[in-house]
């Protein structure tokens, strides 16, 4: 079965990203396909590579990056939500005149249409948020 997963909250403040990650891992282990993970609202903050959690805590961002690398996941960050909250890849940084980008490996920035398309293409859309 094909899943699209939506993550609406950032890391560490809310459990949403952790639950989404645990759900994604279990779905993959059961042989399901994850069509896309879409990060919206403060969920875009899951895509910054500049986080430095304490060593005895989980690294929410790296976990997503590693899962994406292992399973070729499509991790999509909403561009409009990302611009508001300061998440940028090299292209976005250049276009908006910023002197740095901060996107973590495995994430890409794209439009909200990717969420709708994810809902159309997947058998199930599961949302995690606040």
């Amino acid at each position: 079965m094909k899943f699209t997963i939506q993550v609406n909250e950032g890391p560490y403040t809310h459990q949403a990203s952790d639950t989404a990650y645990n759900f994604a891992t279990a779905a993959l282990a059961a042989g399901h396909e994850i069509y896309r993970v879409f990060f919206y609202h403060d969920g875009v903050n899951n895509a910054t590579r500049l986080t430095t959690p304490p060593q005895d805590d989980r690294n929410v961002i790296n976990r997503w990056s590693e899962l994406a690398a292992k399973h070729s996941l499509d991790l999509v960050v909403c561009v409009a939500a990302a611009q508001r909250r300061g998440i940028a890849d090299a292209d976005e940084a250049r276009r908006n005149g910023k002197n740095a980008d901060n996107i973590a490996p495995g994430f890409r920035i794209s439009g909200l249409g990717q969420l709708i398309e994810g809902g159309i293409q997947a058998d199930r859309l599961v949302v995690f948020g606040d």
Partner: peptide, 17 residues
């Protein structure tokens, strides 16, 4: 949430669902 939900509805409208 209300504002960003409205943005999803507007973008979604283009998909003719």
């Amino acid at each position: 949430y209300a504002l960003e939900a409205l943005e999803v509805v507007l973008i979604g409208a283009a998909f003719e669902q």
